[in-house]
Amino acid sequence: MNIIKQHKSVKIIAGILAAIFLSAAFAPLITPHDPVHINLDDVKQPPSLKYPFGTDTKGRCVFSRVVYGARVSLLVGLTATVCAFFFGVFLGSVAGYFGGLIDKIVTFLVDITLSVPGLLLAIAITVVFEPGIVTVLIALCTIGWASFARLARSSIISIKEKDFVVSAIAMGSSRRRVLIRHLIPNIIPLMLVAATLRIGGFILGEASLSFLGLGVRPPQPTWGGMISSSVNYIQSAPWIAIFPGVAIAITILCFNLLGDIVRDYCDPKMK
């Protein structure tokens, strides 16, 4: 494949991401301790052989918690991306193709969503509903679908007058068929590039909500939640804050670098 030849770093990035995914999937096999087991004899231990990343204020193994935390971050980040992608592409395409009232409504909703600072809107949503993974997903989708919809709408508009569409209609295809079989498949590659670029943002969103105490409930470990609980102990036990943050940073960095490479490869002009 050309993309691998052109960018040697793809191998490294893919390797790191694979390692993160595998360790999240096989977390019970590689973690030395139970991530939620409270052990008040070993409180705030610095990193050692027994506890590679040290222990937190309740004596829980930070390494095990970071590995288990990857599960929530990846699950929420990827699911939110997929949901926002689905809604965005669907609504954006329908609006772009059919135009008229439905276009006006969708465009208006997009404008509103994009004119509210994302995290604030996510806070307003998560704070009124039952805290948990579903609420976080709803919040992230609500703030995330709009940019997909805007891109899908404008791409559909730019191709809907092209010859292959006209000929499909001339052949007797219904409008629905034209949209589903001819138009949407054409914008999917571009939309996938946009989605790759956004995964990191969704993971960051989940981490920020968890940090604010609006994410998945404790004792389930999340990276954002771990950092939030470490704030008062950064002087006496900085490792509690450092390791989950490194995990977030590396994961998001890999997704962002991957997104950049995919974009450069697919369309060098789309910067």
């Binding site: 960051l204 950092i227 670098l257």
Partner: peptide, 22 residues
């Protein structure tokens, strides 16, 4: 610059405190 976009703000703040303050 990619790192700047990828690193969580709240964590970066804590690291700055650890390094420049503590």
């Amino acid at each position: 610059s990619v790192s700047g976009i990828s690193i969580p703000v709240f964590w970066f703040g804590l690291i700055l405190i650890i390094v420049f303050s503590n």
